[in-house]
């Protein structure tokens, strides 16, 4: 209910700049209102995932060797003895290798798809036998369970001690009755991401210069960058990145390196809801102070727990000012 006092304030302010904030309207942004993101602002992302499959002897202990691994699935350098902290083995009982790949790409796998999960910490090693893995406290027994008809086995090498987090490389194991191979190598091409991201065709979002006190609201978004229905609760991080000397085309061409190419990034976790004030963003140097007219600015909504690390939403920020608009 609007009280008479409130109604009077609304009427008094209508059309009068004196009632507006310090920077006034800017482009399509109306001062004092949230900046609503639209689907037309979003980039498009198509990511194919190709995980190699290694035939191995059924019901035999298998040596997994990743000493030759020097880059991860997105092409970033890694040291196999330093960066790989956990070896994990997951059994998807009713899914084919293609279905697992698709599920990981779409991030729509359920826990019930997993029949068995075994892991071990690498402790600096670059190889391990499957029998060194544990299912909870108990040793995984490949001589019993590594059977051809049990389902799809996926090996994961991660840089995190938490289960299922920080995958750097993956490889399917394919137990075959007639196979005698008991050693597999996880290499740079065991898993390849084929990514196409288009950020040059989107509608840019106008944002007042040097103004961090703007609330960004993504309630109106319906789809993610892959064209799937957007699950709001997947968004758990908002990031703004600044590229001082790169054009959009250059960023697009090196999309997988976007985090490495950024000169500065400011982030904030999203605990709940679908809006955030940009002043809540921060990095080691301090809080976000707003965009300026230099370089290129990107804003992304991320799901840090999803199997597909590509931002669910990413757009280009176009700095504007009320003075510019008046001209």
């Amino acid at each position: 209910m609007i009280t008479r006092l409130e109604l009077g304030f609304v009427l008094a302010c209508a059309g009068f700049p004196a009632c507006q904030g310090s920077h006034g309207d800017c482009g399509s942004y109306v001062d004092g209102e949230s900046l609503f993101l639209q689907d037309s602002n979003n980039y498009s992302f198509h990511g194919g995932m190709d995980i190699s499959s290694a035939p191995v002897a059924e019901m035999q202990d298998i040596l997994v060797d990743w000493s030759g691994l020097s880059v991860d699935m997105v092409g970033h350098d890694l040291d196999p003895s330093v960066d790989i902290l956990t070896l994990e083995l997951v059994l998807f009982r009713y899914l084919t290798q293609e279905q697992v790949e698709q599920g990981l790409e779409d991030d729509d796998l359920n826990q019930s798809d997993v029949a068995l999960f075994a892991s071990t910490e690498t402790n600096g090693s670059t190889s391990a036998y499957l029998s060194e893995l544990n299912v909870l406290a108990y040793s995984f027994d490949p001589e019993t369970y590594l059977q051809q008809d049990y389902g799809t086995w996926l090996l994961l090498l991660t840089d995190d001690l938490d289960y299922g987090v920080g995958t750097r490389m993956a490889l399917f194991l394919e137990p075959v009755v007639a196979e005698s191979n008991t050693r597999v190598e996880v290499g740079n091409d065991s898993m390849v991401l084929d990514v196409e991201a288009i950020i040059t065709d989107l509608e840019k979002v106008e944002l007042p210069q040097d103004e961090p006190e703007v609330t960004v609201d993504w309630t109106a978004l319906e789809y993610d960058s892959r064209g799937n229905d957007l699950v709001m609760s997947d968004i758990d991080q908002l990031t703004v990145a600044h590229f001082a000397n790169l054009t959009l085309e250059e960023i697009q061409a090196s999309f997988l390196d976007i985090e490495l190419l950024a000169d500065q990034m400011w982030s904030a976790g999203i605990e709940s809801g679908s809006s955030l004030r940009l002043s809540a963003l921060g990095n080691d140097s301090g809080s976000f102070t707003g965009v300026d007219s230099s370089g290129t600015w990107l804003l992304s909504l991320n799901c840090t727990t999803c199997s597909n690390p590509a931002p669910l939403f990413l757009t280009v920020l176009e700095p504007c000012s009320s003075e510019t608009d008046k001209e």
């Binding site: 359920n110 826990q111 798809d113 727990t305």
Partner: peptide
Amino acid sequence: SWGTAGQLDELDPDGQLVRRLNTQLGAA
């Protein structure tokens, strides 16, 4: 509760499934 399989099932008195909930990958 299906524990590490991350599934909750509710059955009616006849043992028929009336509700099923699944956690996303990684949650029990």
